[in-house]
């Protein structure tokens, strides 16, 4: 073995190292915008609303800069990035895996029953699948782009400018970029909501929320990888494993059980206004429910800064895209609006 070949070996090793480091560090890389036939916003929106969610498997990256307070047990809500695995079997069947560190929350819907399993305390919660709507079950709707974008389109189209702003590549799929911009009359913290729609399946692939005064998205939820096609039916069934505590969902529609929607407990919240500056007013969770899931329901009394006005007194929690006021008498007002809009709604 000559000296030269060793020099070669050394260079080779250095090359392997450089390539390896490159592979490790390189971001997914912004692909060039794929050429697609033009489509009108109306056609795109309607095709999204009529598209039937088919079977697919994918991974969803959540890049969260909402500035929400950290809630124990739901790390996805705090600022940062996380990855969620999603399987859909169509017809309301779905599975969502939310991994976090050494544990995992699993949500399974077989079309008639929803299961939620938490590996940390090994509890499984069962609820009837409400509404029979497509897409993955439960509160995953907020994180699954199919449900999230469909919802956003439907709610916002009257009060928004809707345009198709070119194309993009998301999770290796060619996609249209649907952009919803609030009309100038809307008093909102949001600047723009972008939804990337798969050009072929018309399924929303990515949701980007941009707030006023910031170039970086406040929230980006999107597939980093998606494969369409039939999935193993076993994915959409759930049998509580031995040693699991099984309980029924505590609230109607299983809405409260993850503690992510304060104000949804007991009675439906009141809507004040419409469009982008809609304010929801509800009541704080009742104490007896809160005791049951001490780490699930955030203790709102310690969050935010105190405020008061003609409407009363309370605490205000401000994030990049939304403001929440919890009044001392137990009311909660929330909206993607500045604080003033909330106080006006409360004073009404």
């Amino acid at each position: 073995m000559g000296r030269r070949s060793w020099v070669g070996a050394g260079l080779g090793a250095a090359l392997v190292g450089a390539v390896g480091v490159g592979l490790l560090v390189a971001p997914a890389g912004a692909a060039a915008a794929p050429p697609l036939p033009p489509v009108s916003p109306e056609d795109l929106v309607s095709s999204v609303m009529t598209a039937r969610p088919g079977a697919f498997a994918g991974e969803v990256d959540v890049d969260n800069a909402l500035g929400l307070p950290a809630v124990p047990g739901v790390p996805q809500l705090a600022n940062g990035t996380s990855t969620i695995r999603v399987w859909s079997g169509g017809e309301g069947r779905g599975r969502v895996a939310i991994p976090s560190g050494d544990s995992e929350r699993t949500l399974v819907s077989d079309g008639t029953t929803r299961w939620s399993y938490d590996s940390r305390d090994r509890t499984a919660t069962r609820a009837p699948a409400g509404g029979g709507r497509g897409g993955p079950p439960g509160d995953a709707g907020a994180q699954d782009p199919t449900a999230a974008a469909t919802q956003a389109v439907a709610t916002l189209r009257q009060s928004s400018t809707v345009t198709v702003d070119g194309t993009a590549e998301v999770a290796g799929r060619a996609a249209y970029q649907l952009v919803l911009t609030p009309l100038p009359t809307e008093r909102t913290l949001l600047r723009e909501v972008r939804v990337a729609v798969d050009a072929e399946t018309r399924q929303p692939l990515e949701l980007t929320v941009l707030a006023q005064g910031s170039g970086e998205p406040a929230l980006q939820v999107g597939f980093s990888q998606i494969t369409y096609g039939p999935q193993d039916p076993a994915l959409f069934t759930f049998t509580p494993p031995p040693g699991t505590t099984v309980r029924g969902a505590p609230g109607p529609d299983g809405q409260h059980r993850d503690g992510q929607r304060p104000g949804g407990d007991g009675q439906r919240p009141t809507r004040v206004g419409d469009g982008w500056d809609t304010v929801l007013i509800g009541r704080a969770p009742q104490p007896q429910q809160g005791q049951q899931r001490p780490d699930g329901a955030p203790d709102l009394s310690t969050l935010g800064t105190p405020v008061s006005g003609p409407w009363g007194a309370g605490r205000v929690i401000t994030t990049a895209v939304a403001t929440v006021i919890v009044t001392d008498d137990g009311r909660i007002a929330a909206g993607a609006v500045p604080q003033q809009v909330l106080t006006e709604a409360l004073a009404r």
Partner: peptide, 26 residues
């Protein structure tokens, strides 16, 4: 311990380990 088994994390950490391995050996 997750099911279905996600291979991304295992694969990328293995790749990273192999890079360290090659560099260290070299």
């Amino acid at each position: 311990l997750r099911d279905p088994l996600p291979l991304d994390g295992l694969a990328s950490s293995t790749l990273r380990a192999l890079v360290y391995l090659v560099l260290g050996a070299a």
